[in-house]
Design a binder for these strands. Structure first.
Lengths: 171, 171
DNA sequence: TATGAAAAAACACGGCA
DNA sequence: TGCCGTGTTTTTTCATA
């Protein structure tokens, strides 16, 4: 199904070792996946062939997942983004999982989080304008069984980091 | 600074036209940026050179931004993710902008949204464990001037779409 | 938009510390 | 086992029609 994630469900104990060089490679590729092996090699001070082998291995072992281009949302007519904070009435596992699967197939949904706290679900959506946002909220979310309440938070500004930090010991 | 985003602040009126073929290319590349031009061309039924020229043009004109690899968080010792919902006391523009810039330099922060509604800020963080989350919340967020309250929402499950939808007329 | 040639990159493999 | 250099294949890039 998802060829980019061969080992998504691995237990942490089974995740292969990493060293500082691997982490350096990951750092570069997270910020710019179009770097050539040669450029990466120069940056970290290894031979291109060695660097290539490390990248290949990390893909193989499920450390590196897919790579994705980022598209300018404005170029697609996306003029507004929002977070929908959703409360559900029933917390039956099957229902919640199904809910997640359902909403992620809605084109306007960028990501969906099942969370603890005041809300049950936080959903990041992209739309054309406020009218579109209203229709989306009503037609795709409020209407669903199990949804008791939705709060809509317009996104005024956003920042993103592409590099994940490292919280484990390195070989 | 960010070479991948030559035209981030473009007005929508200045964004170049797209046609259905462009959208098809974008769809493929958002899901897998490692596809070769040849593979894309075969998929959409165009010559590789033509396809290549379209990709080049979309990069040039700021439709296509950067490309990033996705890393398995477990491989880095990331065992827990959370959303921090933050209330600020002051809504002075300069303070809020500075706040956003500051927190995005915290390694554990993956994204930060300035929003309307009950909270002012929603911050997605990645940590090793609950102890780490507690320390992060206290040391990096609760402590900052202007923060009046934080609600922490543990992320139990998440889904993501890589393809942005299109809400504009195509050439 | 397509063709074809040149340049560059990715990839496989054998040797070496 | 991990690193390096080389040869081969594939992809990218670009000039030209």
């Amino acid at each position: 199904m998802d060829k980019d994630r061969p080992n998504e469900s691995w237990d942490i104990a089974q995740v292969p070792d990493l060293d500082r060089i691997d982490v350096g490679i990951l750092r570069l590729l997270q910020n710019n996946a179009r770097l050539s092996v040669k450029e990466i090699a120069a940056e970290i001070g290894l031979a291109p062939s060695t660097t290539h082998e490390r990248v290949r291995r990390m893909r193989e072992t499920g450390i590196l997942w897919g790579t994705h281009v980022e598209v300018n949302p404005k170029a697609l007519g996306i003029g507004l983004e929002a977070l929908l904070m959703i409360e559900l009435s029933k917390h039956n596992r099957g229902i919640v999982d199904q809910f997640l699967d359902d909403i992620v197939s809605v084109p306007e949904v960028r990501s969906a989080f099942l969370v603890s706290g005041r809300y049950d679900l936080v959903v990041h959506v992209v739309v054309h304008d406020t009218q579109h946002l209203k229709d989306l909220a009503l037609d795709q979310f409020t209407i669903r069984p199990g949804v008791t309440r939705i709060e809509t938070s317009i996104i005024f500004d956003a920042r993103r980091r592409y590099e994940l930090p490292v919280f484990r010991s390195l070989r």
